[in-house]
Amino acid sequence: MRLSQPRIRPLAPEDWTPEQAEVLAPLGGGGVIPAGPVLNIFRTMAHAPKALKAFLTWGNYVLSKKNDLPPREREIVILRTGFLCRSGYEWTQHAEIGRRCGLADDEIQRLKAGASAGWSPADAALIQATDELHHDQFISTPTWKALLAHFSEKQAMDLVFTAGQYTQVSMLLNTFGVQLDAGQSLDPDLKAF
């Protein structure tokens, strides 16, 4: 985590305007996110409810079955992006989602080490492509060919969409100082640096 306190405080339900409540009300249950209180990311973004509403439209595409990457592979991209962006909040949320999507704890830990950490060729291609997008905002031709050996062109496009979405998410989480939700603990490798 880059900040130990929020720069922008998450809004408490009693402080929501009608417009904020309309956007936030459905976020406490269902889908990839388990039922419960509205997460800090959304309560923070609610300071800009129109932006949050637009953000949710794209985010829902990335996390839905419309994204052709299978859920496990999608979570590999999200977790690697969150780790590269040093986003403790993102990593914490998606480590749990990744487990529900089929990633083992040792795989989640190996994502920190990158593509050469004993992955299958398909997983290594996903991780390499994510690294290249993070460092150069471009997937090299050899890595693109490696992706297409295992994934469709649409899946490769969805990898780019997913990495881009979670780079943006990491930027806002880090900059706004969004803190972990109740009951969560930060991975020691993502403590303040």
Rank of each mutant, 00 (worst) to 15 (best):
T141E: 13
I97Y: 04
L133M: 08
L173Q: 05
A125H: 08
K50F: 03
H135F: 14
T167D: 07
T130E: 11
I78V: 09
Q165M: 10
Q137G: 12
R43N: 15
I33H: 02
H134F: 09
S140R: 03
A51I: 11
R72G: 01
Q165I: 05
K50N: 15
R86Q: 12
Q155D: 00
A156L: 11
V38W: 07
V32C: 11
A163Y: 02
I108V: 05
Q168Y: 06
A95C: 04
S170Y: 08
G164L: 00
F83M: 01
W119M: 09
R110W: 08
G114D: 08
R110V: 05
T130F: 06
T167H: 11
G88V: 08
P34Y: 02
A48W: 00
P142S: 04
E96N: 12
D123Y: 06
N40T: 10
P70T: 14
K66R: 06
A125M: 11
A95R: 07
D105L: 14
A156S: 09
P37Q: 13
L172A: 14
L52E: 06
E107L: 04
L103N: 10
E73D: 12
T130I: 13
P70Y: 15
I33P: 00
K50Y: 05
G88S: 03
M157Y: 09
I33M: 03
A122P: 02
L103E: 14
F138A: 10
E73T: 03
H47I: 14
I41V: 15
T44D: 12
P70F: 12
L52G: 05
S116P: 01
I41W: 14
A163D: 05
M45Y: 15
R72I: 07
G88P: 10
A146Q: 09
P34W: 04
M45Q: 09
L148F: 08
M45R: 13
W91E: 07
S120F: 14
G98M: 09
Y166P: 00
G31A: 02
D158V: 05
P37S: 12
W144L: 11
T143S: 11
A104P: 12
A54G: 10
G118R: 10
S140D: 04
T130L: 11
R43W: 14
I139K: 06
A104R: 14
L133A: 06
K50E: 11
D158Y: 00
A146V: 03
R80W: 02
H47Y: 13
H94S: 03
A124H: 04
S116G: 01
L147S: 09
G102Y: 14
E153I: 03
G102M: 12
L103H: 12
Q165N: 01
A115P: 07
F55K: 03
V77W: 07
K112V: 02
Q137N: 14
E75W: 06
H94R: 08
I108C: 01
E73K: 00
N174H: 11
F161E: 02
S152A: 08
F138V: 13
Y89T: 08
W91M: 15
D136P: 08
A104T: 15
Q128F: 05
A124M: 04
D158Q: 03
I76H: 02
A163L: 08
F83Q: 01
T130C: 10
L159A: 06
K112F: 06
S170K: 01
D158P: 08
A125V: 09
G59R: 00
D123F: 07
R86S: 15
D131F: 07
A129L: 10
A125T: 05
